[in-house]
Design a protein around this nucleic acid. Structure first.
Lengths: 193, 193
DNA sequence: AACTAAAAATGAACTGGTTCAAGTCTGCGG
DNA sequence: CCGCAGACTTGAACCAGTTCATTTTTAGTT
C-alpha cells in the first residue's frame, strides 16, 4: 500500500472520475535527498508537497542565527511555507528533507484552477485549511497551557513516530526551547519513571 | 455604511442572487452586552460570529487561573472558538464582548449546507480558512522572532485601533506576558521617545 | 574497524520575565 | 462630587529556561 495524494483526498471527499483524472494530471512526482531543500527563503513557495515516503521539517532562521521549527511532516502529510504559498510571496521558511524522501507536488495555479472546476476539490481544500487552522490555534494554546516539560511529554505521546525519527535539536526548536534544556528534561522525566 | 456579513463576503467573491439570498436566510442578528459571553467552555461553539459593531476577545483560562487571550475582533472581523466550531466539540475558550456590540451569526450546519449548494460560498470559506491558517502560522513565528517588547511595538503598529480599545491586561495576555511586565515595557519604550 | 564530524549530555553562571505585595490612578453609580 | 472598585504602576525577590564551554555518544565514510 503506497501513499498517494489521490488516495489521501478520496479518504475525505468523493472525487468523481474527471476530478481524480484532472488531479492526476497536475501531480509531479519527485525524489528528494536528505538535507535537500524544497523551499527556501526569498523564493515563492509555488507548490504544496505531499510526503509519500520520508520526512521533512519546515523552519525559520531568525536574525540571531537560531533555527525555529514550525512543522514536521512524515508519510501522508502535507508541508509547505503556507503563508508564502497562499499569497504567492517570497518564503521565509526553509523546508528540508530529514531523510531521502519521495513526494508528490501540486502547483498553486493548477490547484486554484481545479478548485474552480471541481466543487469536490474546493471542498477538500477548505476542510484541510480549516483543520490546519484549528490545529495551529491549538498549538498556540498549548504553549500557554503547558510548561516545556509537559509540552515535550505531550508531543511524545501524540506523535511518537515523529519524536523517534527527528533530530533532537529540531524537536527542541519546535518546542521552543534550547537543545540543552530538552536534554535536561529528558533526563529528569526518564529517571523518575 | 453599515457592516454586514454579505458585503464582507461580496468584497472577496462573487455571489449570485440565490447564494446571497440563501445566506441572508441563515443570518441571525444579535445584540450582545459588554461582558456577556457568546462562547463558553463546555458548550460546543455552534456559530461563527461576524462583528458589526463593538469588540470581542477570545481567551483561555488555564488550570492556574490565568487568562490567555487568543484573538481579538472588532468591526468586520469574525470570531469563534474555531477548533470547537469545526469539530463541533465542546469549546475550551471564552469569547466575551469588550463593549456593547452588534453581531451577525451563522450556524455550523447551515454553513455546511450552503457550502454544498453554492460553490462560491465554499470558495469563500476556503479562502478565509487559508488566510486564517497563514496568519496563525505567522503568529507562531513572530513569537520566535521577537522579544516581548518588539511584539508589543509590532502589535501597536499593526493594530492601533485594537491597542487603543482593549484593556491592558487582555493585551498582555495576548502577547504572552504578565500585565506588570507590559507596564514596564510601556514605561521604557515611551521614555526613550 | 578506525576516523571523523556532528549530535547529545552536562554543569555553572546568567537573564528575561514572573510573582507578590503595596501603592496610585481613573471612571462611573449613588 | 464623593466614594470605591477595577485597572494600571512600581519595586524586590525569585525562577524557568538560556548561554557558554567542555565532554561523551552516535552515525556516516573510507
Amino acid at each position: 500500500m503506497k501513499y498517494t495524494i489521490v488516495d489521501h483526498i478520496q479518504r475525505q471527499v468523493d472525487l468523481n472520475a474527471e476530478a481524480s483524472r484532472d488531479l492526476e494530471g497536475i501531480l509531479v512526482n519527485r525524489l528528494v535527498r536528505k538535507r535537500q531543500f524544497i523551499v527556501q527563503p526569498g523564493f515563492a513557495c509555488t507548490h504544496q508537497t505531499y510526503v509519500q515516503k520520508g520526512s521533512f521539517r519546515g523552519y525559520l532562521v531568525t536574525a540571531d542565527g537560531t533555527e525555529h521549527t514550525v512543522q514536521f511532516a512524515i508519510e501522508d502529510w502535507f508541508i509547505s511555507d503556507f503563508h508564502s504559498y497562499i499569497f504567492q510571496e517570497p518564503a521565509t521558511l526553509f523546508v528540508e528533507a530529514l531523510e531521502d524522501s519521495a513526494v508528490q507536488q501540486i502547483e498553486y495555479s493548477h490547484v486554484e484552477t481545479l478548485c474552480k472546476t471541481h466543487h469536490s476539490l474546493e471542498h477538500f481544500f477548505r476542510l484541510v485549511a480549516q483543520k490546519s487552522f484549528a490545529f495551529s490555534q491549538k498549538r498556540i494554546l498549548s504553549n500557554f497551557e503547558m510548561q516545556a516539560e509537559e509540552r515535550f511529554l505531550f508531543f511524545k505521546k501524540q506523535y511518537p513516530q515523529i519524536e523517534a525519527r527527528v533530530p533532537q535539536y529540531a524537536l527542541a526548536s519546535y518546542l521552543g526551547i534550547s537543545p540543552e534544556f530538552l536534554s535536561k528534561i529528558k533526563r529528569n522525566s526518564t529517571q523518575s519513571t
